[in-house]
Design a protein around this nucleic acid. Structure first.
Lengths: 224, 224
DNA sequence: TTTATAGGTGAACAATTGTCCATTGTCAAG
DNA sequence: CTTGACAATGGACAATTGTTCACCTATAAA
């Protein structure tokens, strides 16, 4: 059927109306307050008499991979795909756009500490189109080298990076030998994480140090 | 939240280096993880042996009105940053931006004749980044099928199309069997042009009719 | 009927997390 | 010398918050 990419507007997950309400409230709460709600705050908002009502919905949302959380920790949500407005979108100026700086060369450090000289252009992507979070400081990188050819990312491509912690399977921008490169982030339960180049001719593995991973790749842009 | 009082000037640089470090870490943590740190997470990051070290700094930051919190609630920070205003940045009017409608399904006809219902999002790309012409009615398509895998364009990718006449070697959006697909446009001197799928398993050739080619692909956008 | 899924109640539990007590030390200004 | 800020320790406490167990209702499918 439709085997679309993981992030897109074409596959609407079939959320229950209740689950949709919960999700919307969580997003809205974060948007208005700057932090995520607690379970009991959600409970109170919907008038539930038990936190279990919320727990059930959260579990469902997590199973549908719309939500992510950190077990046992308070107010640590992560929403994988922003909610699509059910109303037809106004393509006017109302459209919220993420403005992404394109960094030419970030050899070291975090991109927000790199001087503007490193910026060689701008890329603007609609939120709904790509599932970016407007609050994060997304940026774009130009790929050098062939280390990711097996992931269909080639020299000269532009990769949109969202700074955040990586999870197993993510493609990350990693700082190795003073140069930013793309690697696959592998973390199996009970084992230390490592980085792997997606090129069968260079099957190197790299250890993950604290300052290594700069962010997670969210999209690829290639000029033809 | 009215900041009618001219806070800055005074409180701006009044931060201790330690307080600055704390503040930076809090901001950075939210930036990377999407949620605020807990006090003990701050404590651990700085190697404090007591949460009180953090508490003191937080109180100081709150007194200086750089931070806001909600007493007794977890991970509920709010940072007042008088520096870096967010809106006046505006990607200089000098930067010309192409606003591209993303068409979900254009089974027939030219996209500008399709009703707005076909539009499912927008994509904005800087001219410098991709070399688009702002005058043309650029649009974007989502790729279905595997017909272009040998050109490193895969199912689910988004392709930016610029309506114009094709030249030899261009990748074009072509209308075949009532469906828009991507094909390579081949035109050798003295021979009639034809379309070719970039997939060695489907080496079909297609004749070029007048209404066949909708435009030339200029860029690929893929969500990871 | 049985089974499964979505939605919810109620109470208890345990971990996380914010808070406050008293105390120590440094360092610059008065 | 004294005062006051800044910085940090150690331990304890209480509130917030996530989690789980058992049980209930309704609806739709098998």
């Amino acid at each position: 059927m439709d085997n679309c990419s993981p992030i897109n507007l074409f596959t609407m997950k079939d959320l229950t109306t209740r689950q949709q309400e919960i999700l919307t409230f969580i997003e809205h709460h974060e948007w208005r307050n700057g932090y995520w709600p607690s379970i009991r705050e959600i409970q109170e908002k919907f008038g539930f008499k038990s936190t279990n009502a919320v727990m059930g919905h959260l579990r469902a949302l997590e199973k549908k991979e719309v939500l992510e959380r950190i077990a046992g920790q308070a107010r640590t949500f992560r929403i994988n795909r922003p909610d699509m407005p059910e109303e037809p979108v106004m393509p006017d100026d109302a459209t919220e756009v993420v403005d992404i700086p394109v960094m030419g060369d970030i050899a070291a450090g975090y991109p927000d500490r790199v001087e503007p000289a490193g910026e060689i252009g701008r890329l603007q992507v609609d939120i709904q189109s790509a599932g970016f979070s407007s609050r994060r400081r997304t940026f774009a990188l130009q790929v050098r080298g062939e280390s990711m050819v097996d992931a269909e990312i080639y020299d000269g491509d532009m990769v949109v990076i969202e700074p955040r912690d990586a999870r197993d399977g993510d493609i990350v921008a990693a700082l190795i030998d003073g140069e930013t490169t793309l690697k696959r982030y592998i973390q199996k339960p009970g084992e230390p994480p490592y980085l792997k180049a997606e090129n069968k001719f260079y099957p190197e593995l790299y250890p993950v140090t604290e300052l290594c991973v700069q962010g997670v790749a969210k999209a690829v842009v290639r000029s033809l």
